[in-house]
Amino acid sequence: MAQSTLDGPTAARSTVKARKRVWPTLEAYLYLAPTLIGLLIFVFIPIFTSFQLSLNRIAPFGNQTRFVGLDNYVTLLTSADYWDTVRITFLFVLGTVPTGIALAVALAILLSYPVGRMAWFYRALIFVPVIISSAVTGVLFRWLYHPVVGYLSYWMVQLGIFENMQQAPNWLGSKEWALVAVIIATAWRQLGFNVIIALAGVQNIDESFYDAAKVDGAGILQRIRHITLPLLSPTLFFLLVINVIYSFQAFGEINILTQGGPGRATTTMVYSIFETAFVGTPQRGLASAQAYILAVMVISMSFINFATASRRVHYQ
């Protein structure tokens, strides 16, 4: 297009020049237009709308809004219920992240062992949770946690962890176990992704380190302890940050397994936002304030992740 206008014999010299300058820029913006408009409408503007909402009290079932300044934030920060959701969120993160990463690294080391033709099969079995949705995960685990014919309790009894089915935990019905139950389900879904990242990290470690250690007579455990884990630290750090972010945002499993209950035993910060905004009497101003508090936490984690990304380049 630009070429043909240049060839036009009747075109005045000045317009040609102007077009030559204007058209490439215009063309570039046309290529970008869908992405920029989409992000503007559904990401950038809502950042402000959300903050504006958080400064208002919105009458339920009506369009009446009243500016209340930082009242919503004050309400939250002085509410024992809200601090409880913060506490539960941190327990949830503590339950899912460290065990999830430890398990993923152990599996990655095992998978890096040359096992020959069956490797793809083992990998498929261990990676497969990565394609399962949070909703389906919730459904699958609700079945495993079934109070009468649940596989999990039954197998735990078989393994001698509990004496009989009556002694086995009431996974979703008791306040003590419900959080453990959603932690197990969420950590399971997250595992496939974690192993993939950990395995990539393990495979990037140069063989020569191991060969040198073997010559020095280091055993398997010593090699893991003194070579694999230190050289894996950038990957471990990345896994830590990304898992904390994902755990902060976990929603589907909780919604399907416990709906935040029993009581408020599994009401995390994200769940509380959903409940405040969409369940019962919607209070979208208050929910937006909660969303802002959560976003600040998640964005600071992302920021740490981006800021340290360059240091990982060697290993990833």
Binding site: T25, V43, I47, I245, Q249, A291
Partner: peptide, 29 residues
């Protein structure tokens, strides 16, 4: 392509990756 504002816009696009869905889903709804 080369055009004015390329780097700024690129960082803006990348920056949007940090915005959690929870922050924008109520206004979007």
């Amino acid at each position: 392509l080369e055009f004015p504002g390329r780097n700024a816009l690129f960082y803006l696009v990348i920056g949007s990756l940090m915005v959690p869905f929870e922050l924008v889903f109520i206004p979007n709804y």
